[in-house]
């Protein structure tokens, strides 16, 4: 969200209800900031692509792990151990598996950071009064003013839905808005 209305709620239920109502009314540019994950809001976000990236990362990592072992022990420095094949697949499985898990986990962690734009220690949202409690016990929602259904009097609706307060934030020239 670049600019729009921020609404603060004091319970997850209130936020979830307000979010659901606006969503059913057709609003799509909704954001939420909560101290813990809310399943009902998560459903409107769509499926995360990170697991797929992790799968790809894991497969590539596993393939790389096998390749390194094969190249080291069968190509570049072959040693005949008791007549066993140089490309001893069963003996290469443990490291292949571990490399796959390692690569998948690293992919997942960094994908999570990159997609979230983290680390980002300074964010305009942190300037909004009271926003810090979204890490503790307050539930914030944002309606972007780029949403075609956006209107200024949404503030009143949100207050009727239980918002403790609404803040109108605008993108300033120096990018000083959420």
């Amino acid at each position: 969200m670049r600019s729009g209305i921020l609404a603060e709620f004091d319970s997850a239920d209130a936020l979830a209800q307000a979010h659901e109502r606006l969503f059913t009314r057709g609003y799509r540019r909704l954001s939420a900031w909560t101290p813990y994950a809310l399943r009902s809001i998560g459903r409107t976000e769509g499926r995360s692509p990170v697991p797929l990236w992790m799968l790809v990362g894991g497969l590539l990592g596993g393939a790389f792990g096998y390749l390194v072992q094969w190249w080291c022990n069968a190509v570049d420095y072959p040693i005949n151990v008791g007549g066993r094949p140089l490309d001893s697949a069963p003996a290469f499985i443990p490291i292949t598996f571990e490399s796959a898990v390692l690569a998948a986990s690293l992919t997942g962690f960094f994908a999570l950071l990159i997609r979230s734009g983290l680390p980002r220690l300074s964010h305009p949202l942190f300037e909004v009064e009271g926003f810090e409690r979204s890490a503790v016990d307050r539930f914030w929602m944002g309606v972007d003013d780029a949403d075609p259904r956006f209107e200024e009097r949404l503030t009143e609706d949100l207050e009727k839905m239980g918002a403790l307060r609404c803040t109108r934030v605008r993108a300033s020239a120096e990018g000083g808005a959420p």
């Binding site: 954001s31 939420a32 994950a37 998560g42 976000e45 999570l112 979230s116 983290l118 300074s122 964010h123």
Partner: peptide, 14 residues
């Protein structure tokens, strides 16, 4: 790391 509990982030996080 500047975690702010954005629902989009939570979605990936979960």
């Amino acid at each position: 790391l500047g975690w702010r509990g954005d629902s989009a982030h939570w979605n990936d996080y979960r």
